[in-house]
């Protein structure tokens, strides 16, 4: 059986609507009957990544691959890139603006959450070009 691929487009600028792609993915993973804890971790990874694309990068694309033993979530954007990834990974580091903060974002906890909820996380980024975040969640 081949891997299942799910593709989502995330609109930039719409912080109120954000989370649609994650909600859809979660529903699909439930239908596939994956273990609840795996679904929860994948959903948190995807949501934090989706929100980051909306707040920091004006949207992007997500490809979720569901394989036999791994879920891979790849978020690609053409935003400003991350100048200092180590810094960005620190709990509490955030460049979010007032609009995002008023809605409850900007604690600087998203990337650390993604790291903790995934089994592997890789950030490929180039300033002025964009960012790709790839996370893997093992199914067993």
């Amino acid at each position: 059986m081949g891997d299942l691929k799910l593709n989502y487009t995330v609109d930039g600028g719409d912080l109120i609507q954000a989370g649609e792609a994650s909600s859809k993915m979660k529903m699909t993973l439930k239908k596939l009957g994956l273990p609840p804890e795996v679904i929860r971790r994948a959903s948190i990874c995807m949501y934090e990544g989706e929100i980051n694309m909306v707040i920091h990068a004006d949207g992007g694309e997500v490809e979720v691959t569901v394989g036999m033993d791994t879920i891979t979530i790849r978020l690609t954007d053409h935003g400003p890139g991350i100048p200092d990834v180590d810094r960005a990974m620190e709990e509490g580091f955030s460049t979010a603006g007032d609009v995002a903060r008023d809605l409850g974002f900007g604690a600087g906890m998203g990337l650390p959450n993604m790291k903790r909820c995934s089994d592997d996380m890789q950030i490929d980024t180039q300033v002025g070009v964009g960012t790709t975040v790839t996370m893997q969640i093992h199914i067993n």
Partner: peptide, 27 residues
């Protein structure tokens, strides 16, 4: 702060908050 909730709240918890926008449902 939504990503604190995301990172710390457990399955089944009652979430107490004063945030009332749409993102609360997603979290």
């Amino acid at each position: 702060l939504l990503s604190w909730v995301m990172g710390r709240a457990q399955n089944g918890n009652v979430w107490l908050t004063i945030m009332s926008n749409q993102n609360v449902a997603a979290v």
